[in-house]
């Protein structure tokens, strides 16, 4: 059986203080909603563990928006400066859906014939501390895509906020080390504590039931998406899209990137990786004469379709997982007020 502990409010602060890391990023209370902030730099910030998930996903901590991946000159690569460098970091307040996203990103970046050494370095040095959702965002629909508002694996430590205090579950040896260092900030949970946790979790599930009902994205979605006649369909949805790509940047599983080279100063050059988005017109564009702009997906509707197909049809074939965790972040990010739940429900009618 897993080790489970309880702590008070103060005890939890103590526990987070016992994490051995240079940076401890936690979702903290802010006027406009929870945001990630480094507790080591701002010890006064208050972790937002009872609020709904933050609008930002933790993706940027695993795969930054821009990152230098190589330094070279005309004589060769500077091997030392082209290596991943990563300090010890802890992420606090990840939600169950975020852990599902990390499982997905692991398949992309750690899997395949060649692993991504930059992702790998961050992944191995980062401690993951998740928290149950005791409040559910109005856009959340994790239960519709096979998720739940609390995590049972994939974390080093998982926190359940109780009416008073917290229940802390250990998921790895590294998590246990934090507990061991925390001393009397935590004590073993009783059966009564576990019953209180179960009741909290059931209450969160009930909240989700109220906003998503019994709706489940079924296996039929793959067939339905692929059968959709692209020439006619998607026009209505794509017409609302303003091509800002916010949905893909805020999405915890979207991982497309682009490598570009630039002059780094003096005789040096740099290769930089930057987030990219399949919604943008230039994304698929190939070299060609001005005006020709050859692209396999020149129209927005084909790019919109490709994004949906990748999330719900191709990802299960590639990685055995949907490319959607039901976090609903794309819904609040969208300037065109496209609600991915409505798009999906449209297929099941």
């Amino acid at each position: 059986m897993r080790s489970i502990y309880v702590s008070t409010e103060e005890g939890l602060a103590h526990l987070l203080g016992a994490v051995q890391a240079d940076e401890v990023y936690a979702a903290v209370r802010r006027e406009r909603g929870p945001e990630y902030c480094n507790l080591r730099a701002r010890p006064e910030a208050e972790p937002a563990l009872r609020e709904p998930r933050p609008s930002a996903s933790p993706k940027a901590f695993l795969q930054p928006a821009t990152e230098r991946v190589a330094v070279y000159s005309a004589t060769g690569v500077d091997a030392e400066r082209s290596c991943p460098a990563c300090g010890r970091r802890a992420l606090v307040g990840l939600r169950a859906c975020d852990l599902v996203a990390i499982e997905y990103l692991d398949k992309v970046f750690r899997g395949g014939d060649v692993a991504d050494p930059f992702y790998e370095a961050r992944r191995t040095s980062e401690l993951l501390i998740s928290v149950d959702c005791v409040a559910v965002h109005e856009n959340c629909f994790c239960t519709a895509v096979g998720g739940r508002p609390f995590a049972e694996s994939g974390f080093d430590l998982n926190i359940t906020p109780l009416e008073e205090g917290y229940l802390v579950e250990v998921g790895s040896e590294r998590g246990q080390e934090v507990i061991d260092r925390a001393g009397d900030a935590v004590c073993p949970a009783t059966d009564e504590d576990l019953r209180r946790r179960d009741a909290r979790r059931e209450a969160s599930l009930e909240q989700l039931r109220q906003q998503t009902g019994d709706w489940r994205v079924s296996d039929r979605i793959q067939e339905a998406l692929l059968a959709k006649d692209e020439a006619k369909a998607w026009g209505e949805e794509a017409a609302k899209c303003v091509e800002c790509a916010a949905c893909t940047f805020i999405c915890p599983t979207c991982h497309c990137f682009y490598l570009y080279d630039q002059v780094g100063g003096g005789e040096e050059f740099e290769r930089v990786r930057t987030w990219d988005s399949c919604i943008l017109g230039d994304y698929h564009r190939m070299a060609g004469p001005a005006g020709a702009k050859p692209s396999p997906r020149p129209g927005l509707r084909t790019r919109f379709a490709n994004r949906m197909l990748h999330k719900y049809a191709f990802s299960p074939m590639q990685y055995g997982l949907l490319g959607c965790t039901g976090c609903g972040r794309c819904i609040e990010a969208c300037y065109g007020q496209i609600d991915i739940r409505d798009v999906l429900r449209g297929f099941e009618e």
Partner: peptide, 11 residues
Amino acid sequence: IGKCGRCNIGP
């Protein structure tokens, strides 16, 4: 190496 995402045809 199959990570950046842009050259897909289907899966």
